[in-house]
Each structure stands twice: as C-alpha cells, then as structure tokens.
C-alpha cells in the first residue's frame, strides 16, 4: 500500500483552549489510485493533507508512506520525503517569483536530484508552457501559473501527489482544463493522488471520495 493513515488526531491551541481538528482518521491509498477529500471549511481536510505531506506532525496516529512511518522522521527526513516521494500542489501556486518558468518547473526535480530533461520537456509541452519558459511567474495568468506548479510537482516523478484545492483560485473554464491535464499526467506516472476539494463535481472525477465532517470520516 502506498499510503496508510491510521487513527490520526490533531488539535491546535486557540484562545479558548485546544481545538481538535482531526479526531481519528483512517484511510489507505494504493499506487495509481485517486482519492478526493471533501468536506466543509474547518472539517480538517487541509490539515490532513498537510500531515500526510509532512508539513506538520500529528498528535497521535500513524502515517505510513511506502512502508515508512513519517511521524518517526525528523525535519530532514520529512524534507527528503517531500522532495522526491511526495509532491504537493498548492492552491496559491507558491511559485518562486524570482525564477523563470523553466527554472520553476525544474526546481523540485533538481532539489531531489531527479531531474530528467526529457520528462521535463514532455511535461512542459503537455502543459502548453513551451512558449512561456523565459517568462517570470508574475507575467503569467493564474491558470498558467498553476500549470507551472503542477509541472514542477510532477517533474521529479513523485509516488504520491497531494493537491490542496488546486483550482480554487481559477475561474471555472481554466479550472477544468488544468484539472484535466493534472489527472491525465498523474495517471500516466502511475502515482497515487490525494486531492482536497470542496467541489462535488471535481470529487466525482476521482476514483474514490472521502468526506470529512468535524474531523472525522463522515
């Protein structure tokens, strides 16, 4: 199994005391599988995604990716996981504004020492970014920026792709095109995909769907 999540708990300190965001979540995801995480705002779906991405640590429970428990990893180990094994697509794109599109796309693969020029060229071409390579992110539209971000995430060929409302900042038409491209390319790489979305329509396009309510699987 690519990903196994067992009994995850997470709470945050607030002015009114600890607030439990996740209260015992279990899920599994195999290679090539796609899973939509849905739920209302505050249901904990983004938190769960961050925990799986190693961006944060759970209070309790296990997250096992490719057989290793990421809770047992230190910052270095989690960074290593994020570089090569897991790729994250953010709602805010999070491109590096001072790097040109070409460098942004190659960035994570280079970071992971998994840069494959041929694959990167393929991604660029499929994303329709070939003519944009010399530009800076601020010169692109939102849809183009997210395509750069997706290409960057897929360039090192991650085993698991995490996406957090990847089209949340895009208009409907653009969102559909970007989503098609992402699903197609993830399928081709054989990676597992876990996507947070509040859109039932988008969720329906994925293999499975997990709905969260108040920190638990509904």
């Amino acid at each position: 199994m690519l990903l196994t999540v067992q009994d995850i708990h997470k709470s945050y300190a607030t002015a009114d005391g600890p607030f439990a965001v996740l209260r015992g979540i279990d899920l599994t995801l195999g290679a090539g599988e796609t899973l939509a995480l849905t739920g209302e705002s505050g249901s904990g779906k983004s938190t769960l995604l961050h925990l799986i991405g190693g961006l944060d640590t759970p209070d309790r429970g296990q997250i096992i990716i490719n057989g290793s428990d990421i809770a047992a990893l230190d910052d270095n180990g989690r960074a290593h996981l994020r570089r090569g094994t897991v790729g994250v697509v953010f709602q805010q794109f999070n491109l590096i504004p001072s790097l040109k599109v070409a460098d942004n796309i190659a960035f994570q693969a280079r970071l992971a020492n998994q840069y494959d020029p041929a694959w990167t060229a393929t991604l660029t071409d499929r994303m329709g970014l070939t003519s944009q390579l010399g530009k800076y992110p601020e010169q692109l539209s939102g849809g183009q920026q997210q395509r750069v971000a997706i290409a960057r995430t897929l360039a090192p060929k991650p085993r698991l792709v995490l996406a957090d409302e990847p089209t949340g900042n895009l208009d409907e038409g653009t969102a559909a095109i970007v989503m098609d491209l992402m699903l197609e390319l993830v399928r081709e790489t054989g990676a597992g995909l876990l996507m947070v979305t509040h859109s039932a329509a988008l969720a329906a396009r994925l293999g499975r769907r997990l709905h969260l309510r108040a920190g638990q699987v509904a």
Partner: peptide, 8 residues
C-alpha cells in the same frame, strides 16, 4: 515555499 518543496 522552498521548505514545502522539500528543502531541509
């Protein structure tokens, strides 16, 4: 961003 992309 750099950290999220896996830079220790």
């Amino acid at each position: 961003t750099l950290r999220a992309l896996g830079l220790p």
